[in-house]
């Protein structure tokens, strides 16, 4: 069967495309959740938080961050919505969901924002040098000595948490909540924000136990809590869990899929290299090229002569 060059490319393209389109479905079952077996977590009870910003203060102290421009005792920063930045790994935001008390005053709801320490983090998957790792104790750990500053983690994070030292030209780093890794690896260690919380709105413990506690709280007081634990399933589960009496959408929480972030990218990437089929097919395609090319060269030896002759 004779095929010309154009036909060959057409067939090869269709085959490759078909293979790419088909492969993910077949390998989906093969990619499992990459989560540590029994990690720590924190359960934040949004209904208890009083917005005192003590967690911000403790975080600042533990991580040796520069002193804030506005004192932590000052509630003014709550007036605008903030994100974690290089100088503050955790921030508290205030939301007015429209709920009013008996005196017709708006009831504020406070939400602490920090790295969620995903069970299967996008940033860890995106990091091309392994500077970010998910530790067995649940912390998503950043190793500045490995970081090359590509900032892929910032793109990969569904919560838009990592911040970058843009002002530092020589030794810039990525900054995000450490989960007080250096504290919790010790026996009895606890994250500073959880320890300092005056109302114990943050409970620190094993994630599995916290999920049980959250469910129990919701069951015992259904008037107080919505029947949802944010972080239980979101992006494959997070180490930080939230329970609230207000809809999460009104409190700045993103509506995220239950699929872990690395799922799609890693499936494509890993699928491509499964059974070496991608390189093999690449070599086959290239071999095909070479074959056709060579054949043309062999058969075409007379052509120039013929052309010359015709001229």
């Amino acid at each position: 069967m004779e095929i010309n060059r154009r036909q060959f490319f057409g067939i090869a393209g269709t085959m490759a495309g078909g293979a790419l389109a088909c492969k993910p479905k077949k390998t989906q079952a093969a990619r499992t959740l990459k989560a540590p077996p029994d990690p720590y977590g924190c359960l934040m009870d949004i209904t208890a938080c009083v917005g005192c910003r003590k967690c911000e203060e403790a975080c600042n102290r533990v991580n040796n961050l520069p002193p804030p421009q506005v004192s932590f005792d000052d509630p003014r920063p709550l007036e605008r919505k903030r994100r974690p930045v290089v100088t503050a790994y955790t921030v508290v935001n205030r939301y007015h969901t429209g709920k009013r008390d008996q005196r017709n005053q708006l009831i504020p709801t406070f939400v602490k924002v920090q790295c969620m320490h995903c069970q299967d983090p996008g940033c860890v998957s995106a990091c091309i040098v392994g500077a970010l790792t998910k530790k067995d104790n649940g912390a998503v750990h950043y190793d500045a000595s490995k970081c090359i500053g590509c900032r892929y983690c910032m793109v990969a994070c569904p919560f838009q948490i990592p911040a970058y030292d843009y002002h530092d030209p020589l030794t810039p780093k990525v900054h995000k909540s450490t989960f007080c890794y250096h504290l919790i690896i010790k026996e009895g260690g606890k994250p500073a924000c959880a320890v300092i919380c005056p109302v114990e709105a943050i409970t620190f413990g094993k994630r599995r136990q916290l999920l049980g506690l959250a469910r129990q709280k919701i069951k015992n007081d259904p008037g107080r809590y919505l029947d949802r634990i944010y972080g239980e399933h979101e992006v494959g589960g997070t180490s930080w869990l939230y329970i609230s009496g207000e809809p999460f959408e009104k409190l700045g929480f993103l509506d995220l899929p239950t699929r872990p972030i690395p799922h799609l990218t890693e499936t494509i990437q890993h699928g491509m290299f499964r059974y070496m089929w991608a390189p093999l097919s690449l070599f086959a395609v290239l071999g095909g090229f070479m074959w056709t090319f060579n054949r043309k060269q062999i058969t075409g030896d007379s052509e120039p002569e013929r052309k010359e002759g015709s001229i």
């Binding site: 114990e200 620190f204 049980g212």
Partner: peptide, 22 residues
């Protein structure tokens, strides 16, 4: 003590004072 793994849900002394008073 707060976060006592044996008694999940039992709030610590500091938290108890603050929640009760405030």
């Amino acid at each position: 003590d707060s976060f006592n793994a044996e008694l999940p849900g039992r709030i610590g002394l500091k938290g108890a004072h603050h929640r009760q008073c405030m």
